[in-house]
Design a protein around this nucleic acid. Structure first.
Lengths: 337, 337
DNA sequence: CTGAAAGCGCTAACAC
DNA sequence: GTGTTAGCGCTTTCAG
């Protein structure tokens, strides 16, 4: 059996309460006592039992991060950013993947028994939409990430999507490109990354007086490299001419960029490319990929901070807040003049 | 406050023990009672408190996966594979990143209080070496991944590294390449992925009667895209001629391949490339990257299975075992004849 | 400033 | 088949 408070107390010649006080940095302890306890802890190699602590105090010191899929570099990097930010604040992070399932299984993850083991949840919404916002009115402190739910019952942290997409499109326009593909649209979507990014694309075209042409909008359900590659093959086969691509994430851009070059076209000469997310891979692709930096570290930092505030606030709660980061253009080779 | 066993018991008109029995699938329960209890659970929305269960039973239903870094695609994919395998067996996975720290902090993670919250640990060794094997003789069930420690005090699951590297090198030799770079070596390393892969490279050269030339061995400390790119720039600047590259992981290969092409060389015509790991990105790079598939799913599956056996065995323990997967060549464009 | 007692929600023994 | 009891290791309340 492992060492308990009692063992430490016995060795230090105090009660378990005093040991507990020392561990929890209770201020009013005589220095001599504290030293004695600390020494006892050290010699015994005592480690608090987190389960017992959690059971008694109701707090676990852990938060949960619910994301679609770790194989997606954006989310792996987000997980790392959240962990870094949480560790700085003394919190542990449990990562939960929901896969690309349906709404029901996504909710099951959110409400599952594991969520009892955490003080709060960071939830990157995938399947749920605005109409499901009321389902998120749960007792556990919750902060939303992603772009599916706005004006929900709790805090929300994401990037200014439309602005990002507008910057991206304007960048291609500034290079003189006029036949710009929007890659990654979701039909009829208004809210959600795809919908918001498409609207930013349109804004930029409108502002530049370039007519919007539906045949340049390419719908793609999921946003993996494979999807980008397949969509680009179809587009090339269709014969629609284009000289620029705004892809709604980097993976799509990378998949599509490969296919374009495979077809003998030159990037950026024949087709300029820009993505979203600024994943590490974009610094090493051939050519390197211009992209929109969503400020992931800032997102992670604000989200963790707000979640902590919600945890501290308790049942009293906090009125929903929204933080939108300002995206930044990262120019690389795929849009060289 | 949340719903407890007592609430369920009261509603179902039974004792809490009976409810507990139903939840834990205790066999001898009258079907009528079981139904009644199940209904009560359902109407109340009861969820067992995992902390209390863990405290009482000593088991948590979770295992921990300790990896260097989620930003590394190999480990992100490994984490996913382990989670999948663990979930199938009803286990939850806590991911712990150790970063690229020193031995001390790596050990701190391994022995830290969080490790109390899990029934067992899957540990992908990074800094520790053979000489530290005795430190791993800890009470918590442990299974080792990676190539730093062999013949340790517990189970070990990895790939046949030397064989994989030999296959890779033989593949380049079979294309007629004779000036093959080994990219990613660690000076003086014998055990460890780098050491083992270098020895497989030498074996292949020896078997083919091709002389080993030290100037073709490129040392690289860490194995990210950036490292591969930098090393390749230096190699090109050095003027040493080469027509093939065996990179010790895919990230190195991708970084280096980009630089080679940037320099105006053609892949695979001028330089053929092969990597290790078979990460998803290798299917979409330009050109797609030939690589060695380490059988990650098998590694994850065996590791989780063995860990479960160790957990089940309890203090009695199990004699250390070793499972080495058989790597597989995945040929893609970077080594087309 | 420190101690004693209670109990968080659950499961493991052992009654019945 | 089902109920009773005890206690996992800790924090909380309340005395002193």
């Amino acid at each position: 059996m492992s060492i308990t408070l009692h063992d430490v107390a016995k060795l230090a010649g105090v009660s378990i309460k005093t040991v507990s006080n020392v561990i929890n940095d209770y201020p009013h302890i005589r220095p001599a006592t504290r030293t004695r306890v600390l020494e006892a802890i050290d010699t015994l190699g005592y480690r608090p039992n987190l389960q017992a602590r959690g059971l008694r105090s109701g707090r676990t010191g852990a938060i949960s991060l619910i994301i679609p899929d770790l194989r997606n570099a954006y989310f792996a990097e987000l997980a790392d950013a959240v962990m870094t930010s949480a560790h700085e604040r003394g919190l542990y992070v449990l990562i939960e993947q929901m896969g690309s399932g349906d709404k029901a299984s996504e909710l099951a993850v959110l409400l599952g028994p594991r969520m009892q083991m955490v003080d709060g949840i960071l939830y990157s919404v995938l399947e749920l939409g605005q109409e499901d916002a009321h389902l998120l009115d749960i007792p556990t402190p919750l902060v939303l990430l992603g772009d599916r739910i706005f004006d929900g019952p709790t805090d929300h942290v994401t990037m200014q999507n439309a602005a990002g997409s507008r910057i991206a499109t304007e960048h291609l326009l500034s290079l003189g490109r006029r036949n710009i593909v929007a890659l990654g649209a979701h039909e009829n979507e208004v809210i959600g990354s795809a919908g918001l990014r498409l609207s930013g694309y349109r804004e930029a075209l409108d502002a530049a007086g370039v007519p919007f042409r539906p045949e340049l909008v390419v719908n793609v359900g999921t946003w993996h490299r494979l999807d980008g590659a397949q969509a680009m093959r179809a587009l090339l086969a269709s014969g629609v001419p284009f000289d620029g691509v705004v892809a709604f994430n980097d993976a799509l851009a990378l998949g599509a960029m490969r296919v374009v070059q495979e077809a003998g076209l030159s990037v950026p000469r024949d087709v300029a490319f820009i993505g979203f997310d600024d994943i590490d891979e974009t610094r090493y692709s051939l050519p390197t990929l211009t992209t929109i930096d969503p400020r992931q570290a800032e997102i992670a930092d604000v989200a963790v901070g707000w979640l902590l505030e919600r945890i501290a606030a308790g049942p009293a709660g906090i009125a929903p807040r929204e933080h939108l980061t300002t995206p930044r253009l990262v120019q690389r080779e795929s849009t060289l003049p």
